[in-house]
């Protein structure tokens, strides 16, 4: 394998202090070598995303993790803002825009609804996979490799034990990815 073994976790939750799932998942990532966490809402509460600083962080990473709760079938507004300002033409796509090409991208998303809600008969009328394409499209448009998304359903109601298992699984995936790089 090629490229750096560093991981960049871009986490977007407006109230990280109030998010149980987010807290447990992030805690599981603590101590991973060469892993940088950027909490967007703590870093840019005024939405004044520092595009240059973000691009520098992206440049260091071989794997980019976009981690957030699903808001209205999409990303929280600050992450959308992050996409708009950081992934600029000539840098992330378009002529000469190859900064992200070849990097791996993992979408780590938590949802309120469970697998029943995300089914043709459920509240959302579609399986969850139907909601992935917009985010997947962003990664692919920038030339990134789209990895199998990591999804935690029913994040409000999931029992502690199950959540811990999910967090463990996430860490295992990142460790496996790093092992593949070395």
């Amino acid at each position: 394998m090629d490229g750096p073994a560093s991981i960049l976790v871009v986490h977007a939750h407006p109230y990280p202090g109030a998010s149980r799932a987010g807290r447990v998942l992030l805690a599981a990532l603590e101590g991973l070598p060469e892993t940088e966490l950027r909490e967007l809402y703590s870093r840019y509460p005024d939405f004044d995303v520092d595009a240059l600083a973000e691009r520098e962080a992206l440049g260091r990473a071989g794997l980019v993790v976009w981690m957030h709760p699903l808001h209205w079938y999409g990303v929280p507004s600050l992450l959308a803002r992050w996409f708009e300002t950081v992934l600029a033409k000539g840098w992330a796509y378009g002529e000469g825009g190859t900064a992200l090409a070849g990097k791996d991208c993992l979408w780590a998303v938590t949802t309120g609804g469970d697998t029943v809600a995300y089914s043709p008969a459920g509240r959302h009328h579609r399986p969850f996979a139907d909601f992935a394409p917009p985010v997947e499209g962003i990664a692919r448009y920038c030339g990134m490799n789209w990895l199998e998304p990591f999804v935690v359903h029913g994040a409000h109601a999931i029992p502690d034990v199950a959540l811990a298992a999910q967090a463990h699984a996430l860490r295992a995936r990142l460790e496996a990815w790093q092992a593949g790089r070395r």
Partner: peptide
């Protein structure tokens, strides 16, 4: 300087 470096921004 950063205007030159940042391109789009």
């Amino acid at each position: 300087r950063e205007r030159a470096r940042g391109g789009e921004e």
